[in-house]
């Protein structure tokens, strides 16, 4: 039986004046203090009776310069921690250079939730069903993290350690994420299956990214990230490098995705169904990407 409470449990709201103060406070109270940004996941979990030891909620979203999206033609895209999902969806630079990211962000929950939900929050929350994790991973995102020792870079590869578990340590605050420039000609697609047409959590989510690559026999390289079929996103890199790129080859790559994942049964779907859907949606996503690569247009 879920023990959801009518309201939020007791805690003290803390708004530090600086990152240093925030990191110090979080490190000094590793069990009892939690950082939060949009709070869309934090408040729900607190109300549901998780994190009973929480005494302090540390608001880390209003620290300087963190609500910006910047694009640099040499270094790529940087998204600040306080940038909400709607801003990611609507940002012209994101749409021009990383449309896959905008597409994935758009599939998160509802508009009014996306006003509060942040990209960084979605990553730090580390839900296996997170819609944006795949795109961020495939774009090679690198988190900028402020800890008690100061700033460091934290690549997303290796960041996710389990449902709700990441490489962040007490005192760590992710302040932004940077995405290197995508390989020229990259095309991405996010294929999500929920119970409803929109707004649901993913039963299965498949993120596909492909790009031209003169070093492969096929002239291309494809990558997949699978959501909701393991404790952390399942990544398949360097697919479809062999020639020729036929429908059968795409089918076979989709079949590899099916073999690579080990989903569980839960209230949203059975493992058996999820395996089928990983294959079918991977096929669909790879086909969409392939169509985009052939037409020379980025597709969403």
């Amino acid at each position: 039986m879920r023990e959801a409470h009518p309201g939020l449990p007791d805690f003290d709201y803390v708004r530090p004046a600086s990152l240093e103060e925030a990191s110090r406070f979080l490190a000094e109270n590793p069990q009892s203090a939690r950082p939060f940004m949009g709070g869309t996941d934090t408040f729900v979990r607190l109300r549901d009776g998780f994190w009973k030891e929480t005494r302090y909620l540390v608001d880390v979203k209003n620290l300087d310069g963190r609500a910006e999206i910047t694009f640099d033609p040499r270094n790529g895209l940087t998204v600040g921690a306080a940038v909400n999902m709607n801003q990611v969806v609507a940002d012209p630079q994101v749409r021009a250079h990383y449309p896959l990211l905008a597409q994935a962000a758009h599939r998160v929950a509802s508009y009014q939730l996306r006003t509060r939900a942040t990209l960084i929050g979605n990553l730090c929350n580390a839900s296996p069903a997170g819609d944006t994790l795949g795109a961020c991973l495939l774009f090679g995102g690198i988190l900028r993290v402020h800890g008690v020792e100061g700033f460091r870079d934290q690549p997303l590869a290796g960041f996710f350690q389990g449902p709700g578990r990441t490489a962040l340590q007490p005192g760590d605050i992710a302040t932004s994420i940077r995405f290197p420039l995508p390989v020229p000609g990259s095309v991405g697609h996010y294929e999500k299956l929920g119970r409803n047409v929109l707004s649901d959590l993913a039963i299965v989510g498949v993120t596909a990214l492909g790009h031209p690559d003169s070093s492969t026999a096929s002239g291309h390289r494809f990558h997949l990230a699978l959501a909701s079929v393991g404790p952390v996103p399942v990544i398949l890199r360097d697919l479809l490098t062999q020639a020729p790129l036929t429908p059968e080859a795409l089918d076979e790559a989709a079949g590899r995705a099916m073999e690579a994942c080990h989903p569980i049964d839960d209230v949203r779907g059975s493992a058996r169904y999820r395996k089928f859907m990983v294959r079918n949606l991977s096929r669909r996503a790879l086909n969409r990407v392939w169509e985009g690569l052939q037409s020379g247009h980025c597709c969403e």
């Binding site: 879920r2 959801a4 409803n196 047409v197 929109l198 649901d200």
Partner: peptide
């Protein structure tokens, strides 16, 4: 097992 809107889905405007 699904006593919430998260896991008891009803039709939305998109359905």
């Amino acid at each position: 097992r699904n006593p919430s809107f998260v896991d008891y889905r009803i039709a939305t405007s998109a359905d």
